[in-house]
């Protein structure tokens, strides 16, 4: 039985969109929280240094912390994106393998990322 290419494309789009929509919600929430928190921390450090409430003992530590927090945020966001690519891959493979199994009548094991070849 031939594959219904149009339906297959629609199914793959739906699978990918489902993953992306859910994950983008997470990205947005995380980014909003982080950007707001880092901005507030920057203002807190500025104010503390200006008023002398952040002492010489901790001033450099907090300034270095701001720089590192921003970089760490970017790395975390990238990590989330990489995990999403993996999820999309698995979703697409699931759709493809199901279609092929149905068309051929064969039961094909769905490959998963992480399975070495």
């Amino acid at each position: 039985m031939p594959l219904d290419i149009s339906q297959l494309v629609l199914d793959m789009q739906a699978a990918a969109t489902s993953v992306l929509k859910a994950d983008v919600t997470t990205f947005r929430g995380f980014s909003d929280r982080q950007l707001k928190a880092i901005a507030q921390q920057a203002e807190l450090v500025r104010l503390g240094i200006t008023t002398g409430q952040i002492t010489d003992e901790t001033r450099e530590f907090f300034l270095d912390g701001l720089e590192d927090m921003a970089l760490s945020f970017a790395r975390t966001l990238r990590g989330l994106l990489i995990a999403t690519v993996e999820k999309v891959w698995n979703a697409l493979v699931g759709v493809l393998w199901k279609a092929i199994s149905t068309a051929t009548g064969l039961i094909l094991p769905i490959p998963t990322l992480g399975a070495d070849r």
């Binding site: 997470t26 928190a37 907090f62 989330l80 995990a83 999820k87």
Partner: peptide, 29 residues
């Protein structure tokens, strides 16, 4: 530690905690 510094320490820790918690929970896929 004065109260202002305590607040700054808390702010920094909360940001890193959010990063770690969000990422680790996201790996449940």
């Amino acid at each position: 530690v004065n109260a202002f510094e305590a607040m700054a320490f808390k702010g920094q820790i909360a940001i890193y905690l959010d990063q770690a918690i969000t990422y680790e929970n996201f790996l449940q896929r």
